[in-house]
Amino acid sequence: MLNAIIVDDEEFARSSLYFLLQENCENIQISGIAKSVAEARNLLLANKIDLIFLDIAMPGENGFELIPQIQESKAHVIFTTAYDQYALKAIKANALDYLLKPIDIDELKAAVDKAFRHIELSKTSTSKNENLQNLSANLSDRSEIRKISLPNGQGYSLVSIDDIIHIEADSNYSVFYLNNRDKITVSKVLKEYEEILPANQFVRIHKSSIVNLNYLKEYNSRNGLEVMLKNGAKIAVSRRRASDFVDKVKLYTSFDGDKSY
C-alpha cells in the first residue's frame, strides 16, 4: 500500500479524485486531504507520505511552492492540473507525472502504477529529488526549459539541453546523441521531445530526426537537402520540412551573429 494525500482547493476535485482512487486503485491508502499548500505541509509533517496528488493553481500558494517539503519527504508527485502550457512542458521535461482535469480513469491507473515503480526505484536513487530540484529551477526562469530528465532504465540522466546534438527516432524509442559522445535511449516517441524542447533551437528536419541548431556545421542541397552536424553526423532534411528548416536557420543565425554556415 502507498500512503497518499490529495491537495486541491476545489471541493469537487478533491472528492471526485478520492472516489476514483477508492474505486480503482486498491493499493492506495488516502492518509489525508488538504485544500491548501499550508494544510499539505502539516500533513507531510504528521505522516509518512509516499504519494501526493497535487493541484497547481490554488489561491495563496500554488502547488509548486510545496516542492521543498516534497523533497524533504521524498514523496512521489502526480500533478493534477488544467494549468498553462509552460508548466506542463516543465513537468514533462523532468519526467514527472501529471493528470489533466477532468481525470481519466485509465490515465489515473497508469500514473499510479508508474508511481509504484518509481517509488521502488527511489529507495536506491536520488533521481526523483533531482528532478524536483530541476523543475523548481525551470519554473523560476520561465523563459525556456534548460534541462531535461531522461529515464535510462536504472533511474534518470539529467541532461542540459545545450549538450544534446540531435535526437533520432527508433520505432517507439528516441536516441539522444550528446556532445560528450554518450548516447541515451529513451522509451518515448520523438514527438514528445519536439513539444518540450525550445522550438527556436531544436528543429525537426525529418520524421525521425530533431537537430540542435547550436551544432549545425553546414547544410547543402547536393544530394537533396542535407545537414552536417559538428559531430560528423549527416542527416537528410525531408522535402516537406525543408522550408521550415531554412526559415528557422535564418532566424536563429540573425540572433547569433558570430555563427557562419
Rank of each mutant, 00 (worst) to 15 (best):
N138D: 07
H76V: 03
L132R: 01
N94G: 05
R142C: 13
G60A: 13
K89Y: 15
S73I: 15
A95K: 11
I145N: 11
N134T: 03
R146L: 07
I49W: 03
E130G: 11
K147F: 07
L139C: 11
L135C: 13
L158A: 13
A46E: 08
L54C: 15
Y177V: 12
E120D: 11
I70T: 13
I52G: 03
A90T: 00
E168H: 10
S140Q: 13
L132Y: 03
L96G: 00
L51Q: 10
N180Q: 06
T81M: 01
N131C: 09
V159S: 11
R181V: 11
I67P: 00
A111W: 10
I105H: 14
V112I: 04
V175P: 12
V77R: 00
E107T: 06
N179M: 10
S149A: 13
I49H: 03
N138W: 02
K109D: 05
I103K: 05
V77H: 01
D106K: 04
E61D: 14
I145M: 07
D170V: 06
I67R: 01
K109Q: 13
D50Q: 12
A75H: 03
H76R: 04
V77D: 00
I70F: 15
T81V: 00
L158T: 15
A93E: 07
G155P: 10
G155H: 12
A115F: 02
E61C: 08
I56T: 04
M58Q: 14
N129W: 06
E144A: 07
S174P: 11
D162F: 15
I67H: 00
S149K: 07
I52V: 14
M58V: 10
N134V: 00
S143Y: 14
Y83G: 02
S157M: 10
K123H: 14
H166Q: 14
R117N: 09
K114H: 07
N179Y: 09
A110R: 02
S160C: 10
Y98S: 02
A137M: 15
A111Y: 13
A46G: 09
K147L: 08
L66P: 01
L150I: 03
Q71C: 14
D84S: 15
D162R: 14
L66W: 04
Y83T: 06
P102D: 08
D97K: 00
E130R: 05
